[in-house]
Amino acid sequence: MDAGTAAVLGALAGSIATIGAALATGWAQREGARITARSEHRRERREPRHDIYKEFISEANQLSHQTGLYLSFDVDLMPDDITEDRRQLLSGVSAALDEKALEAALAGPKRVTEAALETARLSHRLVGSALNFQGLTEERHQRMRDSVRKSLLAICRRYERSLEGFVFQAQSALDDDGSRK
Results as ranks from 00 to 15, higher is better:
residue 108 G to C: 08
residue 153 L to H: 09
residue 107 A to D: 00
residue 181 K to Y: 13
residue 85 D to N: 09
residue 34 R to K: 12
residue 65 H to R: 10
residue 139 E to K: 10
residue 42 R to T: 01
residue 145 R to W: 05
residue 72 S to H: 00
residue 127 V to Q: 04
residue 128 G to Y: 06
residue 36 T to L: 14
residue 112 V to Y: 07
residue 35 I to C: 01
residue 15 S to N: 05
residue 100 K to I: 02
residue 158 R to K: 12
residue 10 G to S: 14
residue 112 V to T: 00
residue 95 A to W: 05
residue 175 D to I: 08
residue 120 A to Q: 09
residue 40 E to S: 10
residue 12 L to Y: 03
residue 62 Q to I: 07
residue 10 G to A: 15
residue 87 R to Y: 14
residue 109 P to H: 08
residue 131 L to E: 00
residue 124 H to L: 02
residue 14 G to L: 14
residue 149 R to S: 07
residue 105 A to V: 08
residue 99 E to N: 13
residue 83 T to V: 07
residue 123 S to F: 00
residue 178 G to I: 06
residue 168 F to Q: 15
residue 53 Y to M: 03
residue 106 L to E: 13
residue 54 K to F: 14
residue 160 E to T: 13
residue 18 T to V: 15
residue 145 R to D: 04
residue 106 L to N: 12
residue 39 S to E: 14
residue 86 R to N: 12
residue 104 A to Y: 00
residue 35 I to K: 12
residue 115 A to P: 03
residue 100 K to F: 03
residue 39 S to N: 13
residue 41 H to W: 13
residue 172 S to N: 11
residue 80 D to K: 07
residue 175 D to E: 14
residue 53 Y to I: 07
residue 161 R to I: 11
residue 113 T to H: 02
residue 170 A to F: 06
residue 149 R to E: 02
residue 179 S to P: 04
residue 34 R to E: 10
residue 32 G to R: 13
residue 57 I to L: 13
residue 45 R to S: 08
residue 168 F to K: 13
residue 45 R to Y: 01
